[in-house]
């Protein structure tokens, strides 16, 4: 698949939040303010990219030669958890200011469906290394895009007259519903 279309497809057309419904849990929690949205978004891009490439290497380098493909899930999730732990320690030690901004999100990312999903998807779709790299940047870029858009909308909503029952998360889902229609118009593009 053409690399550019792969990127656009991962970021916009099959947007991981609006089209695939993955990564919703932390999404709802973090998309309330713009600063946290940007911080989380960048952290997710970094973690997804590194974890996906590493797990791709692990799969084709270790699991396939040893015919242990069924261990894929365990090894991937352990790899992700270990990687996030390692990154957190690294940032804590080397850059306390960065840790203050991003560090709090890192534990959240371990159980973020998005990381595991992208890592597994690269294997299911049988992507090559370069396709994995492009896909693993495009998809979390879409996640970050959604985070930023949502946080601006939710910030605006705070002063408004939302029905009591819908306050908080339900109204966010209504916003998501409307955005889903908007983004579904892109579906025939590729």
């Amino acid at each position: 698949m053409n690399l550019f279309t792969l990127f656009i497809s991962g970021m916009l057309i099959n947007n991981i939040i609006l089209s695939k419904f993955i990564g919703m849990c932390p999404f709802m929690g973090v998309s309330t303010k713009m600063e946290s949205a940007v911080g989380m978004g960048l952290a997710v891009i970094f973690v997804v990219f590194c974890a996906s490439v590493l797990s791709w290497g692990l799969y084709y380098g270790v699991l396939v030669p040893l015919e242990l493909e069924y261990m894929k899930l365990i090894t991937f999730i352990l790899l992700i958890a270990a990687f996030v732990q390692f990154v957190e320690l690294f940032i804590k030690k080397n850059s306390p200011s960065l840790y203050k901004q991003l560090g709090i999100y890192l534990p959240l990312i371990t159980t973020n469906c998005a990381v595991l999903y992208v890592a597994l998807d690269n294997i299911t779709q049988k992507y090559s290394l370069i396709e994995t790299i492009v896909n693993s940047i495009g998809v979390p870029a879409g996640f970050m895009l959604m985070l930023c858009i949502f946080s601006t909308i939710r910030e605006r909503l705070r002063g408004n007259d939302v029905p009591k029952a819908f306050e908080g998360n339900p109204i966010a889902f209504i916003i998501a519903a409307i955005m889903a229609i908007a983004f579904s118009s892109l579906s025939g593009l590729v």
Binding site: L18, S19, F21, P163, K164, A165, F166, E167, G168, N169, P170, I171, F173, I174, A176, A177, I178, A180, I181, S184
Partner: peptide, 18 residues
């Protein structure tokens, strides 16, 4: 489709919240 999923979830969540 996606729109219906979000709307249904929002309404059910709002009902529970109410």
């Amino acid at each position: 489709e996606q729109f219906g999923a979000f709307i249904t979830f929002a309404c059910l969540a709002a009902a529970v919240s109410a």
